[in-house]
């Protein structure tokens, strides 16, 4: 149900594409994210691209970490 892997799209033709991660290549279907481009990072589940991975927002999680750091420290001292 939930096992989905970050991979990179290296070739597209029609609704089919080749995704690669750690040197392993897999043919996938891109119907669920049809505007995907080669070079983009995507989430693959059961042979389908189910979403793009947005590296920009990934940095946002760094802020969460910083927030946790600050908050937790405050929390600990409180």
């Amino acid at each position: 149900m939930c096992l989905a892997i970050p991979m990179k799209i290296i070739k597209i033709n029609g609704i089919r594409a080749i995704a690669e991660n750690r040197g392993v290549e897999q043919e996938v279907n891109i119907s669920l994210v049809p505007d995907i481009q080669t070079g983009e990072k995507v989430l693959i589940h059961a042979g389908f691209v189910i979403e793009r991975i947005d590296e920009e927002t990934a940095r946002e999680i760094e802020e969460i970490w910083d927030e946790i750091n600050a908050d937790v420290l405050r929390g600990q001292q409180a």
Partner: peptide
Amino acid sequence: LLMAQMIKNKKADILNAYTRVVKENGNER
């Protein structure tokens, strides 16, 4: 950690800690 904090501060909120993939409306297609 985010969850433990919310419980400690008695906050009933929903936080998205997987922003690189999950959007507010999800995958509408």
